[in-house]
Simulated scan of single mutants.
Amino acid sequence: MVSKRLKVKVQSGGTLFLDAQGLSLHVDGDEGMRARIEVAEQNGRRVALSAVTPLEVRRTGDAAKRLAFLLSRLDVKPVTDDVIRAAAKLLDASGLDGHERLVDALVVATAALSAPPVRLVSSDASHIPKLCQAAETLPGSPVVKVISV
């Protein structure tokens, strides 16, 4: 259940979406990522990620505990039928190989279906930007801008 406070923030500020690198930096205590998330929350943005992203960022020991704690504070979006259909469209529109870029396509599709404006934190400078550009071909022409880390 989403709190009333978070619902108001989603309506006003959009979404800061984390890919595996963004989440990994956050789990590892990166000050730059912490600051980005703090500013996003102060500006009413929801901080979200795809349900597949924690699988890419698995940790053990104390880091696993920190990951679990951080995930409890973030909006983890499920992989729904709509996300799968959107990911397939993104792969088709971008010309990328579905086998090799499946997770990237799921992440961008989930971001594209989030509350706008959407900013996707990623270190990928080749595939993610192509998929984000392809997102503009989806219904509603969602714009997903990349924040490079």
Score class of each variant (00 low, 15 high):
Q11C: 10
L120Q: 00
R58N: 10
A135E: 03
L6C: 07
L120E: 01
A68Q: 12
I84C: 11
V76M: 07
F17D: 01
V8D: 12
A20R: 05
S72Y: 06
E38M: 11
S50W: 00
L16E: 00
H26V: 11
K77Q: 14
Q42V: 09
E56H: 05
V27T: 09
A48M: 00
S3I: 05
V39D: 09
G140M: 06
L70G: 07
R101K: 14
T137D: 08
R66E: 15
L120N: 02
S24F: 06
A111S: 06
K77M: 12
D62S: 15
V103W: 05
H99R: 13
A48F: 01
V83E: 03
L96I: 04
T15Q: 03
A40K: 04
A135I: 02
P142D: 01
K130V: 01
V103T: 13
T110Q: 05
R58V: 13
L23V: 09
S12K: 14
G140T: 05
A88H: 09
E56S: 09
A88D: 14
R59Y: 09
G13H: 01
V108H: 02
A35Q: 14
L106T: 02
L49C: 08
R59E: 14
L90A: 08
S122D: 06
A64T: 07
D28C: 08
A93G: 05
H26P: 01
G29S: 08
S122A: 13
S24Y: 07
A51K: 03
G44W: 08
A88Y: 09
H99A: 15
S123G: 12
V121F: 03
G95E: 08
R45K: 15
V118H: 02
S12N: 12
A135W: 00
T15L: 01
D104C: 07
S3Q: 11
A125M: 12
V144S: 01
D82L: 11
Q21Y: 14
D92Y: 09
R58D: 04
R45F: 04
G22S: 10
K4L: 15
D19F: 08
L16A: 06
K130R: 15
L23D: 10
K130Y: 00
P129T: 05
T80Y: 11
S141A: 14
A135H: 00
S141V: 02
F17V: 03
P54M: 03
S114C: 07
V79H: 06
A135G: 04
